[in-house]
Design a binder for these strands. Sequence first.
DNA 1: ATGTTTATGCAATTTTATTGCACTCTAGGA
DNA 2: TCCTAGAGTGCAATAAAATTGCATAAACAT
Lengths: 150, 150
Amino acid sequence: MDRIDRKLLNLLQRDASRTNAALADEVGLSASSCLRRVRRLRQSGVIDRIAAILNPAKTGRTLKAVVTVELRLHGEPNTRQFLDLAAREEAVAQAYAVTGEVDAVLILRLRDMEEYDALCNRLFQERMNVARYWTMMVIRTGKDDTMVPL
Amino acid sequence: MDRIDRKLLNLLQRDASRTNAALADEVGLSASSCLRRVRRLRQSGVIDRIAAILNPAKTGRTLKAVVTVELRLHGEPNTRQFLDLAAREEAVAQAYAVTGEVDAVLILRLRDMEEYDALCNRLFQERMNVARYWTMMVIRTGKDDTMVPL
DNA sequence: ATGTTTATGCAATTTTATTGCACTCTAGGA
DNA sequence: TCCTAGAGTGCAATAAAATTGCATAAACAT
């Protein structure tokens, strides 16, 4: 994992659709050498996958929200159960068990308030293991990055 | 934007590295027709970009944290300024201005606690516009998805 | 119905990825 | 210092994939 690998990863995180020849050019390698490095990065798992990143606004999911959740019963099995339930929800983009005042944090990508309402009814209803929850609707996005800095 | 487009987007969000021929096969189109659809989805901006998704654990960024921030001075220009400062930080993956008890939420991808400490000193020091902040370290990840459901 | 726009499949063509091979560079050991 | 093993490299040939033109078919509005 040298300087060239890092350069390749940075370029590919931004745009993985360029041709291998162009990529090779940018890092100053031959096409074959470049290809072998990228293949190695994929096989070693540093590159998890190549994916299309959609524009959420153009797909009708314009609302974003951060929800903190306090559970009624704490501890491993209960937290895991809640996290699994949340993960199954389409609108839940991220679900974390965390330290601090609350037990879990969810990041939601919503179509509209109706979807939010339905989700709350499913995840936070009386008979669920949720004591309280706080919703923070996203007003403005300063950054939303899939890139891991190297 | 019909059923086939949605199918294409779902497939490409999972794996954009497959060949166009394979993709065409999966949705039951000819290669040329499939290619033209994907190109259209890219040009219309529904597909923002094709990117390599890295495994954060394999790149040394193993710590994740959610930080809620209460600003001293509220309102548009102050919030924007803080968000811009946060966005410039490498370790900040997401930065949002939100409704609710706090003003902003940050998602951090950290190398170690030292990096966390340094970041806090830069973003939350006395002379910054931050009244208080609460850090929630991520214990377990139930979901962390780049996909937008269709 | 009918003209018009839009999408489709096929086949030819162009572009790109992939491989074998000989060479180079580097680190470690005698 | 010299030698050698291993990994990495570039070139050129080959295989695979993307892209295009064109004729046809489907969808749409009048």
